Computed example of a mutant assay.
Amino acid sequence: MHRPTYGSMLRASAVTLLLALAGCATMDRDECLAVDWRTVGFEDGAAGYAADRIGQHRKACAKHGVTPDLAAYQAGRQEGLREYCVPATGFRLGSQGGSYGGMCAGDLEPAFLDAYRSGQQLHTLETRLANVNYQLDAKRDALQKAESDIVSRSALAISSEASAEERAQAVVDVKHLGERVGRLKAELRQLADDRIHCERDLDDFRATLQLTP
Rank of each mutant, 00 (worst) to 15 (best):
M27R: 15
F112E: 04
D194R: 15
V132H: 10
L188W: 11
G48E: 01
G80S: 02
Y116R: 00
F42T: 06
I196K: 00
Q169R: 09
H64S: 07
A138G: 04
H123D: 10
Y100M: 14
T208F: 04
L129I: 07
S13E: 14
T89S: 12
D203P: 09
M1T: 08
L184D: 14
A47D: 07
H176D: 05
F42N: 09
M1W: 09
E43M: 09
R128D: 05
K175H: 14
S159T: 13
A162I: 07
L136V: 05
H197A: 13
A47G: 04
H197G: 02
S95V: 08
C61N: 10
G80E: 07
E126A: 06
V172K: 01
A46F: 00
D28F: 03
G101K: 14
A130R: 04
G97Q: 06
A50D: 00
T39K: 03
A130L: 06
I196N: 05
R58A: 14
T16I: 15
E199V: 14
L108F: 10
V40M: 00
C198A: 12
C61L: 13
D114C: 04
N133T: 05
Q144E: 05
R29V: 00
R167F: 11
L156F: 05
L18H: 10
S160A: 15
I54G: 14
G7V: 12
A71M: 11
L156K: 09
D203R: 05
A164H: 02
D173A: 13
L143F: 15
E166Q: 13
D137I: 08
C61R: 08
T5P: 12
G90N: 02
R180G: 12
E187R: 11
S118M: 04
Q169A: 11
E126M: 04
A12T: 05
R38K: 11
V132Q: 01
A50L: 07
A22W: 00
A14S: 09
R206C: 10
C198H: 04
V86H: 07
R195Q: 14
